[in-house]
Amino acid sequence: MNDQLYQYLLLLGDNPLILGHRLSELCGHGPSLETDIALTNISLDLFGQVRHYFQYAAKLNGENQTEDDVAFLRYEHQYKNTLLVEQPNTDFAYVIGRQFLFDAYHLPLLEQLMASKDKQISAIAHKSIKEVKYHHRFSSEWVKRLGDGTEASHQKMQTAIEDLWPFVAELFEETPLEQAMKEEGIGADLSQVKEKYDADVQNIFELAQLQRPDHQYTQSGGKKGVHSEQLGYILADLQYMQRAYPNMTW
């Protein structure tokens, strides 16, 4: 099997998996019914994307692998999501901040992947981008509402952005895997993604009356399997059934 492609699919699928998981924790706890429903829609979209990536990955892997084996039966260091998406739902400003900082990356990433030489990845990107355009619209609108809402909401939104900012750089750190995939014409060119990202974030922050954090320190490691403490707890939930009741059909 093509191990690099397999690994790249994990890299693409793990972000929506873990972000979808975080959003699904909020179902039933949103600030209004309307918002609750909207966040769940995003979560469902993301899980849908995960299933496409992992069904493809499972097929590559052969040996009767399923999407669930890929999603549930890896060890901590085998998950490749970025640190950003595993950050907790501290409050609604973090939820929105995390979503926007990811959507602003996800959208140009998918634009690139639509042109992937790999037909399946390209097809998944074509389908997903429609969903992600909406996610981006939703999250950027809310960044503006919170950033330019009340004094209190502005404060909370700014704090969330400050706290999440150190995780942004990792989105664009090109790992050897991403470099190889880019060179084969399968993967995205992160430097181009970053260009769009910076402009987008700058624009929305201005409209939202938010300061772009100026600190330089960053946190990374997720793409290489070195995570924050958060991931262990997420996996404890995510994998619970598969681990406690192995080899059963659900």
């Binding site: 309307e34 429903i37 909207a38 829609n41 909406y134 619209r137 939703f138 609108e141």
Partner: peptide
């Protein structure tokens, strides 16, 4: 927001 909520609901 009303249009977006309507879309979602």
């Amino acid at each position: 927001m009303a249009i977006e909520n309507a879309r979602d609901v």
